[in-house]
Amino acid sequence: MSLQVEELTVYYQTLKGDVRALEEATFRVADGEIMGLAGESGCGKSTLANSLILLKPPMRLVKGRVTLDGEELPIHDMERMNSYRFERISIIPQYAMNALNPTQKIGKIIADLVRWRQVDFDDILPELKRRLDLVHLSYDVLDMYPIELSGGMKQRVVMVLSTLLNPSLLLADEITSALDVSSQKAVMEMLVSFRGWEFVRSVIVITHDLSILYQVADSILIMYAGQLAEKASTVAIIRAPRHPYTRMLISSLPEVGVKHAERRLTGIPGTPPLLLNPPEGCRFRERCPVAFEKCVDVPPFIQIEPGHFVACWKEFETNARA
């Protein structure tokens, strides 16, 4: 059941007009699914994540509805949304290392946060300690100030804190971008374990790093310039991508065993469009090698195989012919 997003459209209001950061996003995340959300900087990944939990100005909800476990989320209503945040839907922010108030002890911050949820800190303390143990932190951190912890430790504290009330959906926003490769792997494995331990039911992992998603995600959703491009199982995205953007993205990843001194890594020529006045139709068409006249219309995000969604006219055509 889990998360169902329908036609979610979110713009940023600026003095020059709307920045159309997210257009008509429709997808679902199944119970227990870890979905990777990937795309280059500015493609709308974080906008999508933020609009699910903290949609506030300058963000503006244009249309769309979000359903979590069969219940519609009042994402446009800052106040009403408060009762869902933290308990049903939670986030590990991009800035997890600065996410804790520097002048309060960590235990005090956690106690303050749970008190508003009618949870007594002493009741939850044994569970909190157990979870700190699971992420290899000593209980002493509760009596410490955030500056006494390393960046990695702070991030683990935030991971435990964000999932303390067992939310059904967790948004992990670029949580590995500030880490070295070995820590990246450890953090990602921890996230998978969190699902195993049932601290969270489903996870959306937002990243620009496809190789990380390959290790942990069940499925991957690729975005380009505010539009959904493709969603499929991780294997399908990596082995048999259907959208030209995904294909080019995958082929620009380095491969093991290939000497790149001999074969240069190919990138994608061109740059993404500005979203203030984006081009009509498919926003990838100016960089797309297979674009044709039909691409001036926005392609729908359609299921072409079970669990494989794509938004590309060329692909629909080839599919229809086959």
């Binding site: 945040r85 933290f86 308990e87 986030i91 922010p93 600065n98 996410a99 303050d112 935030v158």
Partner: peptide, 17 residues
């Protein structure tokens, strides 16, 4: 506008705190 305030907001903490 600092990060910790945004995090608290995302966790649905009352404005008062």
């Amino acid at each position: 506008e600092s990060d910790y305030a945004h995090y608290l907001e995302a966790l649905g903490t009352p404005r008062k705190l």
